[in-house]
Amino acid sequence: MKGYHDIGGEPAGAIPMQEHEMMLWEKRVEAMLLLLSQKGLLRVDENRRGLEAVGAEIYHEAGYAERRIQSISTNLIAKGLISIEELAAKVADIEQRSDVLP
C-alpha cells in the first residue's frame, strides 16, 4: 500500500513559484532536528518515519516546519524523552505567557 509521502509520478498542479523566507521558529525546528540527530537521540530516518505517520492531512496541508515539529514531538514522546503530561503542562503555560513570541 503506497504511503501518502510516496508521490513520485502522481498528477499534481502547477509548481508554486513564490519564495518563502523561513521564519525563526521554522529554523529552530530544523536546528532541533539537526542537534537531536548529532546527539544520536533522533535519527533522520526516525523523523522520516514520523513524517509518514502524521497523517495525510497534516503531511499535505500543513507547512513544512509544522509537519516536522509534529513528527519530532511524537518521536520524543515515543522515546520517553518528553512525556505527554509535561508537554500538555508546557503548552498550557505557553498559552498564559506573553513572552513567547519574538
Binding site: R43, V44, D45, E46, R48, R49, K79
Partner: peptide, 10 residues
C-alpha cells in the same frame, strides 16, 4: 534506513 527508522542500529 529500514532499521534506523525504528531506533535500531541499521
Amino acid at each position: 534506513p529500514e532499521e534506523l527508522a525504528y531506533g535500531r542500529s541499521g
